[in-house]
């Protein structure tokens, strides 16, 4: 059904009219069409009644009651894990990257296990060669240290000291005392200050 000034207002047109943004030609139709004008006014009246409904609030202490059942997060425990999870699932690209990396890791681990199972002789030969070479290197290093030690100028004095039990005991006692004094001094240096220090407020 139409009118000389154009088709009747659609529900969308009425919605636009309610928000005050109806196009001028539709506005002209509205002014000349009694049927549309009546409908628009009734709709506006309903909207006005709805907007004027009184505000309502829950009873006092609502916030407290809610907070009693809310578990506050531990920022240190959650942040790192949650941040990682969010970053990982942030976009399809990062998700695909993470999935690719996991797949690569799994493939390389599987390949490594399969190769090891198929080449057990090679692995055991390699193991024994490594063990003998390591043993030889350790023996050479020990001999070098001992030779170096014997060639030191203080070696003769130290050997004479070790020959006399009284002198050895005295030297040991002195060394222990020096060690203890060092430990005490270090503890004092590392102790937290006992005096209160003012902190900046957060």
């Amino acid at each position: 059904m139409t009118h000389p000034s154009g088709p009747h207002l659609s529900p969308d047109d009425i919605e636009v009219w309610l928000s005050g943004a109806l196009a001028p030609e539709r506005e002209r139709h509205l002014e000349s069409c009694r049927e549309c004008l009546e409908r628009a006014h009734v709709e506006r009246e309903i909207v006005e009644q709805l907007s004027a409904l009184p505000a309502m609030g829950p009873a006092l202490g609502f916030s407290e009651r809610v907070m009693q059942s809310v578990i506050l997060p531990d920022p240190f425990a959650i942040r790192s894990l949650e941040a990682k999870r969010r970053r990982l699932f942030a976009s399809p690209k990062s998700l695909a990257f993470a999935a690719g990396l996991t797949l690569l890791l799994l493939c390389s681990m599987t390949a490594s296990i399969v190769w090891s199972l198929g080449h057990q002789d090679t692995l055991s030969a390699l193991g024994s060669w490594l063990a003998s070479e390591t043993g030889q290197a350790a023996w050479l290093a020990l001999r070098g240290i001992a030779t170096n030690f014997i060639e030191q100028p203080w070696y003769a004095g130290a050997r004479a000291l070790a020959a006399s039990p009284g002198r050895l005991a005295l030297a040991s006692a002195l060394a222990s005392l020096t060690y203890l004094a060092g430990v005490v001094a270090l503890r004092r240096l590392l102790a937290l200050p006992t005096q209160q220090v003012a902190h900046a407020s957060v």
Partner: peptide, 21 residues
């Protein structure tokens, strides 16, 4: 999300009336 209790209370304060209504 950072664990500030006052922020929780603020969210309740902002939405308790419209949600209840």
């Amino acid at each position: 999300r950072a664990g500030q209790e006052a922020a929780y209370r603020e969210l309740i304060r902002r939405y308790e009336r419209p949600i209840f209504a």
